[in-house]
Simulated assay, not measured.
Amino acid sequence: MTENTRPAAATVAGDLRVVLAQLVRRLREQATGSDLTKSQSAVLGRLERDGAGTTTELARAEGIRQQSMAAIVAALDGAGLVSGSPDPKDGRKTILDLTEKAREEFRTGRLAKEDWLTQAMSSELSPAEIEQLRVAVELIRRLTKA
């Protein structure tokens, strides 16, 4: 990167961070009815992405104490969003996974977010701008892998 592109990249980086945060907030607004904390949502998201795991594995992955994770898991279990089953390799451990209720809430929430975003794009952007956005998405995807 040359000296001339460094300020431009820094400006774009700042603008991109702000705009993406605003978009994330708007998308979150579309999934109504959730009383989950950020920590609870993060655990559900991790279970959805990575699959079933123990409380210890989840705590390690989220960078929190096992006792804190146990409290989060208890709340999610009480809400019917996770369930546990004995680990077939070590019966002392419990493998946690999403319930069908949690999976349905993920599907419903995603559809609401995508419906809103599709509607917003269709009403606010021209076909050429939607194509520009498609290209930008690919660039952002590359950045996430850097």
Rank of each mutant, 00 (worst) to 15 (best):
16 L>N: 03
17 R>G: 02
18 V>R: 12
18 V>E: 08
26 R>V: 05
28 R>F: 04
30 Q>E: 14
30 Q>D: 01
30 Q>W: 00
33 G>C: 05
34 S>D: 09
35 D>S: 08
36 L>P: 01
37 T>E: 04
39 S>T: 07
40 Q>K: 08
42 A>H: 06
42 A>M: 07
43 V>Q: 09
43 V>F: 08
45 G>P: 03
45 G>Y: 05
45 G>R: 06
47 L>P: 03
48 E>Q: 14
50 D>L: 06
53 G>M: 10
54 T>P: 07
55 T>V: 11
60 R>P: 01
60 R>L: 09
61 A>C: 04
65 R>P: 06
66 Q>C: 05
67 Q>R: 09
67 Q>A: 12
68 S>L: 03
70 A>Q: 15
71 A>Y: 12
74 A>V: 03
74 A>T: 11
77 D>F: 08
79 A>N: 05
79 A>P: 01
79 A>H: 07
81 L>N: 07
82 V>N: 03
82 V>A: 06
84 G>L: 11
85 S>P: 00
91 G>N: 10
91 G>H: 13
91 G>R: 14
103 R>W: 00
103 R>Y: 01
103 R>N: 08
105 E>N: 14
109 G>V: 02
110 R>E: 12
110 R>S: 13
111 L>S: 12
112 A>E: 15
113 K>S: 05
122 S>V: 00
124 E>I: 01
124 E>L: 14
124 E>S: 15
124 E>Q: 14
130 I>G: 01
